[in-house]
Design a binder for these strands. Structure first.
Lengths: 197, 197
DNA sequence: TGTACATCAGTGAACGCGCGTTCACTGATGTAC
DNA sequence: TGTACATCAGTGAACGCGCGTTCACTGATGTAC
């Protein structure tokens, strides 16, 4: 079978996108290459025409996942009323929709502990994605300098990720909602209020 | 081989303690029964004299891990100067020692995402441990009612867990320390300052 | 008191299974002549 | 224009491995008679 010029790049992107979703949903360790490929109607043998190893896919999938959540939060921030960009980000991040859709949500909330266990070279590649994410979001953080805004990002986003991950642990739906609501008002008061006049 | 009366309970406790450590270090999914048993000089065949399934062990190990961290934080709070119990808790939780010792540290930081994926019955059992942990720590939270203190626990502890997990992702040691330091001062200012007169 | 038997924590081999990875092969198309 | 060959994304079977789980067995001790 001979495929058109662009075919390989398209398949590669599809594999990464599918992995980005299922790794966040089921864990990168738990989800196998075979399952990802089968989800695209492909067989796992073909995987190695696209990636050197599973770790390569993990690194690419995590990078894409960071780009996805970054773009989404920027869209939400830009759509928010004047001066309420960060508030909109916090409220979306700690929303029930985000809680219930880990596959399209924040990587940190879904995979932080697993990423911390990855080999150093993979973590280094992922570090680039995290810093890119941070620098995009820093624009919406309060602070007089870039360093200050980065530092606040480094508290707010991991903290929200922790709350989201903990809320996902709870079995009771109303307990989840109470936890998210308390965190929303806390983080809006602590961070977003400062960006208002 | 006939063993003394207390032998079985002791072995059971040793398995749970070893699992509590290695599950937090390597992930509960990634760490096998065989490895836990071998670490105690036992063979994996004997595992099923003590537990019905791996999920049973996970539930018991997580419960014990919550008790461990709970007792440790209480000890630290009780040793702190008058009115500085919560500050001491925050500073210990977000310390370099805690960062570098996931095996004896907070379960939430190490396993939240994995626990969220466990079958509901297992999560229900773990829910009991979390609520016990919460009610012990609530005593050190600011607030006029138990409900208020519980609600604050539900923001502070998951948030700190998220920061700790994110700091463990970073490869650079000084970046880790900067993230922890920023979070320490933020959480002390936001929560612990309120408990001072 | 002495003997036969029951107990049961732990052993070690086996089970089916899915994993990541490798590799000889396929076959529609593009290229060379 | 027609034929022979090269390309290479994807296939499917196989690899060694470790997993969770099962099970017949061991053997030192306690108990029954």
């Amino acid at each position: 079978v001979r495929y058109p010029e662009s075919h390989k790049a398209e398949t590669h992107a599809k594999i990464v996108a599918a992995a980005a979703r299922s790794f966040r949903e089921h864990g990168a360790e738990a989800e196998g290459i075979g399952a990802v490929m089968a989800g695209l109607g492909l067989t796992k043998g073909g995987f190695y025409r696209h990636f050197g190893s599973k770790d390569d896919l993990v690194a690419e999938a995590v990078a894409v996942a960071f780009e996805e959540i970054s773009e989404r939060l920027v869209r939400i921030a830009e759509a928010a009323p004047q001066g309420r960009a960060l508030q909109a980000i916090v409220e979306h991040y700690l929303s029930r929709e985000h809680l219930e859709a880990p596959g399209s949500g924040c990587v940190l909330a879904a995979l932080a502990a697993e990423i911390a266990r990855l080999p150093v070279p993979v973590r280094r590649r992922i570090g680039l994605s995290i810093r890119a994410y941070r620098d995009v979001m820093a624009a919406y953080m309060p602070g007089d300098s870039l360093d200050e805004r980065r530092e606040r990002f480094g508290v707010l986003f991991p903290a929200m990720a922790g709350v989201l991950a903990a809320a996902r642990v709870l079995e009771d739906d109303s307990a989840r909602e109470r936890m998210l609501a308390a965190a929303r008002s806390f983080f809006v008061d602590s961070f977003a209020a400062a960006t208002l006049g």
